[in-house]
């Protein structure tokens, strides 16, 4: 029998700790496939966040550091500066990157650190049990916005791609969706592009994945996907914000 699909080499055989229907596994796989295809695994170092993907250091089959909440881009900066010959990526959720780690992500991006940042936006804190995230949509109910997010009280969700796109230094910025097979294929192309630029030390690359959290949204995975399409995609528009490799990309 011919093997036509298998686990990427860049993922270990440790079982994921994610809930059924969670898209972290898909995002992990896309990153790992890109690492395999670009032959980067042996020279890759990753940084895991605090959040549902806190155990990412066990899943990616390369040397990994576990960072304090939000500090992954600073940790990655230290790693890349210590080992400029290696490749470095961070994997972060919305609470980690867009709330407690806002300073670290903005300044790593602004320095144009030669790292790739993979940002999972599912509009909620997963690991701590479904609290409001900086990307929670207006009106969306969470355990800390039980009457719905009141944008007049706590503000609107933060669009990180748009925010980072105001900086001059970043090399590549793209928002992708994990909500359909077609979207996942597009996401894969963006991830591979970011990784290719990472391999060539071209600068700071940033991918935001629009994802879901069936468990804390309280819906089944298919409904979660539909809800995200209807509610998240209009606010968080997918697309490429910047690719300095393209003429006029700057």
């Amino acid at each position: 029998m011919e093997v036509i699909a298998t686990r990427p080499k860049s993922l270990t055989n440790v079982p994921f700790t994610y809930c059924p229907g969670c898209l972290h596994g898909v995002a992990h796989r896309l990153i790992a496939e890109a690492m395999d295809e670009l032959d980067m695994r042996n020279n890759m170092m990753g940084v895991a966040p605090v959040g549902c993907s806190v155990f990412a250091y066990e899943f990616f089959d390369c040397d990994m550091a576990e960072a304090a909440h939000g500090r992954a881009p600073a940790v990655a900066t230290g790693m890349k500066r210590a080992r400029p010959d290696m490749h470095v990526f961070t994997y972060q959720g919305d609470g980690d990157l867009a709330a407690i780690g806002t300073a670290e992500i903005i300044h790593a991006a602004n320095r144009g650190e030669n790292i790739s940042v993979f940002f999972i936006n599912n509009a909620i804190y997963g690991m701590t049990g479904g609290q409001m995230a900086p990307t929670t949509l207006p009106g969306m109910k969470t355990t800390t916005s039980p009457y719905g997010r009141d944008e007049n009280d706590i503000g609107y969700p933060i669009r990180m791609c748009e925010l980072i796109d105001t900086l001059v230094s970043p090399y590549f910025i793209e928002r992708v969706s994990l909500l359909s097979p077609q979207d996942i294929n597009k996401a894969k192309r963006a991830v591979k592009k970011a990784m290719q630029y990472n391999k060539e030390d071209r600068g700071f690359t940033f991918i935001e994945f629009i994802s879901t959290c069936p468990t804390n949204w309280g819906v089944d995975p298919l409904k979660a996907r539909d809800w995200a399409k209807e509610n998240m995609l209009p606010f968080f528009k997918v697309g490429n914000f910047r690719d300095k490799a393209n003429a006029g990309g700057e």
Binding site: A74, T77, R81
Partner: peptide
């Protein structure tokens, strides 16, 4: 935290 990353190397 940059120190943490570099020390890890």
């Amino acid at each position: 935290n940059m120190v943490y990353g570099a020390a890890g190397c």
